[in-house]
């Protein structure tokens, strides 16, 4: 169980971005953090594993406060996949190996290699392991990043707009992989995403943010016309179609 309690954060010289953000999430759930640009979604995500240091509050994982741990200890529990993947001349294998960095003493052990092998196999990037990262397509790169995150053997997986640079096929493929990891391994996944329909299709918890605060939190029922109007300022309907929910913004809805 991950519990976020009264998290506050402000950037130097700016007003507060996050105001008393609190919520709980069970293992094996896939959470989407939603809201307008600049509302503090990515900031919130980065506070969970101390890329940013919150002013106050707690992030408890199994009762332990992540904010009191060393960077290494946090990295053994929480993995992070960022929006952009820089072009580097590191092989896929070396990039996934980085996931074992939080466990490394003087060098990598046989166990580290086995875990890396498994992670690459799981994400289907094994046959590119000798290739450099800058030779891969956007979708392939994002899968490599997921394999690296998996090699960290995390309890929580944070994703900052992981699909924003991908085509529709890769968007679905990547999110399906995340959902599988989440459900099968009991890992909590928390994702910042803009596409409401993708979120509705793959996630099972939704956190709507407005003005740095939690506006609504819960299952898909929190995403209704009222919430969309209030959070995004758009007139929209949530339709049910073939057992799925779809957000439809009305023609004169903006």
């Amino acid at each position: 169980m991950m519990q976020v309690k009264e998290l506050n954060f402000h950037y130097k010289g700016s007003p507060e971005v996050l105001k008393d953000v609190s919520f709980d999430i069970e293992p094996g759930k896939f959470l989407a953090i939603l809201g307008n640009n600049g509302v503090g979604k990515s900031t919130l995500l980065k506070c969970f594993n101390r890329i940013l240091k919150p002013d106050s509050g707690e992030v408890l994982l199994g009762g332990e406060n992540l904010l009191n741990m060393s960077g290494r200890e946090v990295a053994r529990r929480v993995a992070f996949v960022s929006q952009s993947v820089p072009d580097t001349q590191l092989t896929v294998h070396d990039v996934v190996m980085l996931g074992r960095r939080p466990y490394m003493q003087w060098g990598f052990t046989e166990e580290d290699h086995t875990i890396v092998h498994d992670a690459m196999h799981r994400l289907d990037v094994e046959d590119m392991r000798g290739r450099f990262l800058n030779q891969l397509s956007g979708g392939e790169k994002q899968k490599v990043m997921l394999a690296r995150a998996l090699a960290q053997q995390p309890k929580v997986l944070l994703l900052d707009e992981p699909t924003s640079a991908l085509d529709i096929q890769n968007q679905h493929q990547v999110l399906r992989l995340v959902r599988d990891i989440c459900h099968k391994d009991g890992i909590t996944a928390i994702m910042v995403i803009h596409d409401l329909n993708l979120a509705l299709q793959f996630c099972d918890r939704f956190l709507l943010m407005k003005d740095g605060e939690v506006y609504r939190y819960g299952d898909h029922s929190v995403l209704d016309s009222d919430a969309l109007a209030s959070v995004y300022g758009v007139k929209a309907k949530v339709l049910e179609l073939e057992n799925r929910r779809i957000v439809l913004v009305e023609e004169d809805g903006v």
Partner: peptide, 16 residues
């Protein structure tokens, strides 16, 4: 090597 993936990713891997 971790720094090549950017500062945020490096921090998330436990690097100071």
């Amino acid at each position: 090597n971790a720094l090549l993936s950017g500062e945020e990713t490096a921090i998330s891997l436990g690097i100071h």
